[in-house]
Simulated scan of single mutants.
Amino acid sequence: MTDWIERAREVAAKLAVDAVERDRRGETPYQEVRLLKDNGLVTLLGPAEHGGGGQTWETAYRVIREIAKADGSIGQLLGYHYLWAWAARLVATDAQVAAVEELYTTGNLFFGGAVNPRDADLTITEDGDSLVYHGHKSFSTGGKVSDLTVLEGVLEGTDDHIFAIVPSQQEGITFHDDWDNIGQRLTESGSVTISGVRVPWESAAGYVDRRFRPLVYNTLNVPAIQLVFANFYLGIAQGALETALAYTREHTRAWPYGGDDKQAASEEWYILEGYGDLQAKLWAAEALVDKAGTAISRVLHAPREELTPEARGEVAVLIAAAKQRAVDTGLEIGTKIFELTGARASASKYGLDRFWRNLRTHSLHDPLPYKRREVGAYALLGEYPTPTWYT
């Protein structure tokens, strides 16, 4: 793990150089994704026999966090890529898993996903031995920087949801370049129209003879990606605190009108107290997120047939707790650092606002009070979260 984290730190250092300017321009991050590819981070979870890193999710989560310290958008893109690259293992047959992992690992391919359950699902029609996807999604993270896109829709006349992996660059997929939010500006998360994208029936993930064989393991997609969220939230928070500390060391001036005048800001009791409080809370959040990462990595890499509803529930509750801690701590840091750095730190050139904007934007993905309720129902009633699109 250590070597991969160090490699991620080296990539993050390059991203940090112009992170403020890139955030301001909001351009499609082709070069940033190329940097991830060139440094082997895209194939970190890929099988070693195909040239991949052969690493575990525990390592992947830490790598996401390191990248997000420098650039929350690129941390999100990498985290989503890891989840969609693992999607075959979550739901596909053994043969499909082997084919997908060889394809993306040998090709160093980057994943995006048009899987937004709040929209009406894409419609799938049958045409002989093919499935044909049609519809529109208001969000599709990865967009134009992806090589492969995960589609999900409902087969017409049924309640059957079918996942498939398709090339992103084709006539039937139109990315609309309409992501214009206050944060996570480089995630290519705009809307997409799917028009007549054809997939062979044998590529329908997890279907054998046109029937799906469900496992509890299939439902790990939500806990896995919720912990992706928590890790890039945590990375954003770490980046915010590190950036603020560096600013205070170099620029913040002591306040000369408090009756307890100091020579340097680093001697001010309220600055020391403020940073001490934030650092302690951040360390606590890190510990909980790491605990959750160890727990889910253990079940993600275990035989799929062995996962029980109870084991899945224990992991889901822990991740719900980790996510809320990462959000609350990160938002507090993103706000409090301005009090500790001083008025001049609010200048646009320093870009301290991007940390709060990034975390605030994505943490609205699904309501945090529901995560608190999941933990409360477990603590008070011993209930596990019911697997849904968000739990």
Rank of each mutant, 00 (worst) to 15 (best):
T2F: 10
W4A: 12
R7H: 06
E10W: 03
A13Y: 03
A16F: 04
V20E: 09
E21R: 07
Q31F: 06
V33S: 03
R34H: 06
K37C: 00
L41K: 13
V42A: 06
E49K: 11
G51S: 09
G52D: 06
A60Q: 03
Y61P: 01
R62N: 11
V63G: 03
K69Y: 04
K69M: 09
G72F: 00
L83N: 11
R89E: 15
D94Q: 14
V97K: 11
E102C: 07
L103I: 04
Y104W: 15
G113D: 11
A120W: 04
D129E: 14
Y133V: 02
G135W: 15
H136L: 07
G143V: 02
G153S: 03
D159Y: 12
D159K: 14
F163M: 10
V166Y: 07
S168F: 09
G172K: 08
I173D: 12
T174Q: 10
D178T: 09
W179R: 04
W179N: 11
I182C: 02
S189E: 06
S195A: 14
V197C: 10
G206P: 12
R210Q: 14
R211W: 13
F212V: 00
Y217H: 11
P223W: 01
P223E: 08
G235P: 05
A237D: 05
E242W: 00
A254G: 11
G258M: 07
G259N: 05
A265F: 00
I271Q: 07
Y275E: 13
D277E: 08
A285S: 08
E305F: 00
E306M: 08
A311V: 13
R312A: 11
E314F: 05
L318M: 13
A321S: 11
E332H: 04
K336H: 10
A343G: 09
G351C: 13
R354C: 00
W356Y: 15
R357F: 13
N358A: 01
H362W: 09
L368N: 08
V375K: 07
A377G: 00
L380H: 09
G382A: 08
